[in-house]
């Protein structure tokens, strides 16, 4: 059971948010790998936000791309007069700039899909745990069925059905992922639901949505933090996979996955950099998020230290 659930209500009030955050950070910082990963994520977010200022070139401005610059080796000086540190792709895009902009798109899609899946999954899971009975049975049957299928397959099917575009892609990712959130919060909320303070709250004339939002939700939340982090990473990976399969966003604004797919045909002729560098950026992003999530899971684990 969660530590917060076992703590007396008075204790929770006595501890300020700041002191609890401080405790959390101290435990988190025990792992140097996790701290470094967190710094890497911060750097990636920084690059993604300030991509237009950091990039030597606007990779989306087709008028500025020169086909004479296509497939230049890393370190070559192009017609723009500056060094293409990571080379250029087939359309003559500077790869470094393309990666910065690609990170932007990949992160945006990952966060958007993760957040939406969180809200939808959380609502469904909470309602199921609170209502119980047939509603719960039905909802959780659907969720379980969905969890038994691989997310990649669902996302693949949905993008195929919905067609290309940002919102279609996000919808596909959300449908493929909300079930993880629903399952997790349902587990912790069902355990909380049976505790006395919820029973007491139900006995008062408080409306259901207040009990759900003010009492049940905050106390069921901790396990969800880990799932949310992991799911952002897997949304990014899923999006990259879909783009690689040609089912992602149109190529005018390539995400990391699309960049990799784009370079795949040149890989066989030895022009490795077009695929490999965007891939490295993708892998660093996914692995750092996963490492942070791993440490958060470790810190939040109530059985830790026993």
């Amino acid at each position: 059971m969660s530590t917060i659930g076992d703590t007396k209500v008075d204790d929770i009030k006595a501890e300020t948010w700041a002191s609890r955050l401080g405790d959390f950070w101290r435990d988190f910082a025990e792992s140097k790998v996790a701290v470094v990963s967190l710094l890497v994520i911060a750097a990636i977010i920084f690059v993604a936000i300030f991509a237009p200022l950091l990039s030597p070139q606007d990779p989306y401005d087709l008028a500025r791309l020169d086909l004479f610059d296509s497939r230049l080796r890393p370190g070559t000086v192009g017609s723009g007069g500056y060094v293409h540190v990571l080379g250029t792709d087939a359309a003559g895009r500077d790869l470094l700039s393309a990666i910065f902009y690609g990170l932007r798109i990949s992160l945006m899609i990952g966060l958007l899909a993760g957040l939406l899946a969180l809200v939808i999954g959380m609502t469904i899971g909470l309602v199921a745990a609170y209502r119980g009975g047939r509603v719960e049975a039905l909802i959780m049957r659907v969720v379980d069925l969905q969890l038994s299928m691989p997310a990649i397959l669902l996302a693949l099917v949905l993008t195929a059905m919905l067609g290309q575009g940002l919102w279609q892609l996000v919808t596909a990712l959300v449908v493929a992922q909300y079930a993880y959130f629903a399952r997790t919060i349902h587990g912790s909320a069902s355990a909380e639901r049976d505790k006395d303070y919820i029973e007491a709250a139900i006995a008062t004339p408080l409306p259901a949505h207040i009990i759900l939002l003010r009492h049940l939700l905050p106390n069921s939340l901790p396990p969800l933090i880990v799932v949310a982090t992991v799911q952002v990473a897997s949304a990014i990976a899923l999006e990259a996979t879909l783009s690689f399969l040609g089912l992602g966003l149109p190529l005018t604004q390539p995400s990391l996955g699309a960049l990799i797919a784009n370079g795949f045909q040149y890989l066989l002729s030895g022009r490795f950099w077009i695929s490999v560098y965007p891939g490295i950026a993708l892998v660093i992003t996914i692995v750092s998020i996963n490492l942070v999530a791993d440490q958060v899971r470790h810190v939040l684990n109530p059985r830790r230290g026993q």
Partner: peptide
């Protein structure tokens, strides 16, 4: 094995 995207590893293997 868990976190690397399958397609990326496949690409590296081919390369």
């Amino acid at each position: 094995g868990f976190s690397l995207p399958t397609f990326w590893v496949g690409l590296l293997l081919v390369m």
